[in-house]
Design a protein around this nucleic acid. Sequence first.
RNA 1: CGGGGCGUGGCGCAGUCUGGUAGCGCACUCGGCUGGGGGCCGAGCGGUCGCUGGUUCAAAUCCAGUCGCCCCGACCA
Length: 565
Amino acid sequence: MTRLSGYLLPTEKEAPADAEALSHKLMVRAGLVRQLAAGMWTYLPAGWRVHRKAAQIVREEMDAIGGQEMLMPVLQPAELWQRSGRYEIDELFKLKDRREADLVLAMTHEEALTFHMAREVRSYRDLPMILYHMQVKERDEPRPRAGLLRTREFVMKDSYSFDRDLGGLERSYERHVTAYDRMFDRSGLEWYRVEADVGMMGGLGGHEYMAPCAAGEDDVALSDTGYAANVEVARATAAPVEGLPAPAAEPQPVDTPGATTIEGVSGLLEVPAGALIKALPVMRGDGTPLLVVVRGDHRLNEIKLQNALGGPTRLATEGEIRDVFSAPPGYIGPVRAEVPVLADEALMAMRGLIAGANEEGRHLRGVEPGRDFEAEWADIRTVEAGDTCPGGATIRIEPAIEIAHIFKLGTRYSDPLNARFLDEEGKERHIWMGSYGLGPARMAAAAVEQFGDEKGISWPRSISPFDLHLVTLGQEGEEAREVADRLYDELRSLGLEVLYDDRDAGAGEKFADAELLGCPLRLTVGRRGLEKGEIEAQVRRGREKRPLALEGAATAAAELWRELP
RNA sequence: CGGGGCGUGGCGCAGUCUGGUAGCGCACUCGGCUGGGGGCCGAGCGGUCGCUGGUUCAAAUCCAGUCGCCCCGACCA
């Protein structure tokens, strides 16, 4: 029984003053969610229905690849995390119990499940295995934001695969790709599977599932040949620089007083920014200096740099630039540099470039990488719109929400937590693991972002809080009320989930609330239609209205509903 | 962590500069009208002005501290 007169659906005319993202505004306005504190959100009944529907799709597809659902605690002993090496992560909530024992609130469940599998798996005969749960995750985010898009507590479906070797892991991974592709197809979202950074912890590869939308926190590089990668790792051929100066037989000094930035130098010398060499002095983790150079119009990609070097770097301080790099800040360059040089591949084979001369107020023209300085080469820049993808098509960049992340862990956790088994030869081996996360709340928020309009939300059928929104404009005792009551029962007996707006409210208010909540199909029963023997159907997406004959209206509505996205 | 902004009934805001009876719209309650796009009339309920301390005869307003929330950036196994 879902009659709006007795249902907690507190809609608001105005969005919270501090909301920016569309999904934040609309989910609050539609009465789906309410904020408790920064990054902490309550799901009201209709909002929780959406979450449950998304979760159910995920559950069905996980079960379809042989996943076994279970449940693990959020509250965990610190010791497990100390053993895995993740105890020092800033985002990890740490606390003590009354006996002063150290505990944590889990941000994912690799430690817990690996702990169990280390005890339960003895033999290769116990493998492979896929286990999953849907459980709250806790993360002390530096900055929660945008409603449900980045919260400190959220439900995640996390699954873990356990295999005897890399080949097994690859197979388990592929099964997850299949399941995830199906989940997101079923969800009605627009989505991409993209190559993702595996971070320092992964190492064996991974993918992210991204839902493009304006409020997205990540940028995705896409092309018409199907190339799709997070810009953190995307690779592409740089667009050539137009208007390069002529090459020179050797570097020529040129006075550039006061020009310490790319804009300053390119303006002064009247050359495009791409004709310059941007030099970034960095210090490696072991304290050794490195001069990183990229094309003047390109941006250094710190993740790629970190992956290329196998460790993090930081920008050198002004003092270090003078002392270690022996150059005045603003005039550093790779020619006759006193430190090793790492150059971005986009600079390869370029001629006639301009670089800092390592002297105050002076640059060099006609620089050629390879001829005028030696360097290690690597792909360390961020790709840009207009670059060319490996398939030969033009790259475009779109913002997107990360709705899922899957990757191959290898023995990252089975090693420190001693999850091993005996193979056929009686040899002890580490279990190969994969981990696969997915946020149902982000699926919901992404759907709001992708399909919301000026009137409100427009849910895909599969995750809408209700299938149908039935509005009666009749008062108690009037025909339009009795017909709607009857229709409500008929629709439900056809297996549809119906929200019945039986409130004593004006037509405008009911219509506005229905469009705000965004069920895919709205049915209106009013005197005006009944006089013609009709009720009105409105498809939310597009808001097109059409009459349905009163006779057989429930069946006709059900058929119409089945055709909706 | 760096930068910016905001805390006044449930929501959205004014009042703060220039100290002196806390106000508006929406929502809510009651009565009446209306009944196909947030309708109308009337009468009401509801606020320690985030918190603590200070200045003052007097503080939403001035000062200090503190807490909370939002945005941009950094960060995001």
